[in-house]
């Protein structure tokens, strides 16, 4: 693959990583730890929202993040003709 295309592929990959890891950080450290007390004022059924994010919600988001990443990268690999 040509050098410039390779750089383009890589910088797109980095952009995906930045988006996904920002969400990863916000749902766990943000909502589950730093702002847990504020979010606990919101009730979600029988849960306080902050507590739910820390013990349940963040884990569901983690799973979703990986599958989104898989879909995005498979598409990107095809676009740049580097898939297997």
């Amino acid at each position: 693959m040509a050098q410039t295309k390779m750089q383009e592929y890589w910088s797109k990959n980095i952009r995906y990583l930045t988006i996904l890891l920002s969400i990863w950080f916000i749902v766990s450290y943000g909502m589950g730890i730093f702002f847990v007390d504020a979010l606990n004022n919101i009730q979600l059924g029988g849960f306080k929202l902050g507590f739910w994010m820390a013990q349940q919600g963040s884990i569901y988001v983690f799973v979703a993040l990986i599958f989104v990443y898989v879909a995005w990268m498979n598409k990107l690999d095809k676009e740049y003709d580097v898939d297997e």
Partner: peptide, 26 residues
Amino acid sequence: LISFMGYDGAVYLMGWTGGYVLLALL
């Protein structure tokens, strides 16, 4: 462990799952 720690048990729940996002992406 969680039943004795309550909210604090989240360190294990998030800590031992969130690492997989790093593994998969990085």
